[in-house]
Design a binder for these strands. Structure first.
Lengths: 131, 131
DNA sequence: AAAATAATAGTAATAGTTACTGTTATTTTA
DNA sequence: TAAAATAACAGTAACTATTACTATTATTTT
């Protein structure tokens, strides 16, 4: 991964992503970084987010709402998506890699991994409903 | 679900979707139906596919390739996505709903369900690689 | 058969994202 | 450390998947 030069904008994006657990979309990152670099371009945000993913410093979370979310936590972990507010929340749970074995037992292809998203109502929406 | 009139185009779409296990995208359905209705519009395909989903006669498969795939099999089952050719294949495996319990055990929100996609190399791509 | 209305084809618009271009910032080299 | 090389930038245009709009056509109701 040579031919990559330092850039202030990329570092700002990297730092912001590392500072939040909110799994922001490119647009959310763009809005945040604008407070530091008012004329940063959305293209720059996309390019750098994708570069961070390529470099293994971030992952994409494709939770099915039509936008990519980004996460600086590259460790294996699971996400919950609130059907009410759309928030993406980290789940504290053990790995469930045994499901790959289950899936592979009657399948002739090679299973390298799986992605699981959990859906429901998040704690804060649950509290609002009860009011 | 009243106020829904019969349409030849919708029935053709429904029949095509029922006849295939290929999990086609709207565009793939459009291309197929054109052999029956040469001037069907892509908008008609999208509208009817979404209607079938609303009526519970099909499901959307959002496997993360930027396009919605459609499936007339509305029973609970799992999908495998080939990282090489992008094919979406049904997996013959038991339900793994216990993972929802695992996920919920340390989470304050309400977990209604989960979606799992398995990734790897499909049998046919595996065969090509070995040549 | 006529009136009502849902669905259509065709087209325009939208959202999220990527590509292009001339300029600027960073790095390399001498 | 200045000049040359080049990656990254901002701004804009283009692209892809999808939805919305509109006048016309097909289906259903009366």
């Amino acid at each position: 991964m040579a031919n990559v030069k330092f850039s202030r904008q990329r570092e700002a994006i990297r730092e912001y992503l590392a500072s939040t657990k909110s799994h922001p979309t490119a647009d959310m990152v763009y809005n945040q970084i604008q407070s530091i670099y008012p004329n940063i371009s959305l293209g720059t945000v996309y390019r750098n987010l994708n570069l961070l993913v390529e470099q293994g410093d971030a992952i994409k979370v494709s939770c099915g709402d039509g936008m990519e979310h980004f996460d600086s936590d590259t460790s294996e972990h699971y996400h919950f998506i609130c059907k009410n507010c759309g928030d993406v929340i980290d789940l504290d749970m053990e790995c469930i890699n045994h499901i790959n074995t289950i899936a592979g037992s009657a399948f002739d292809g090679k299973i390298d991994g799986s992605i699981t998203y959990f859906y429901g109502i998040c704690p804060s929406c649950l509290a609002e409903t009860k009011e």
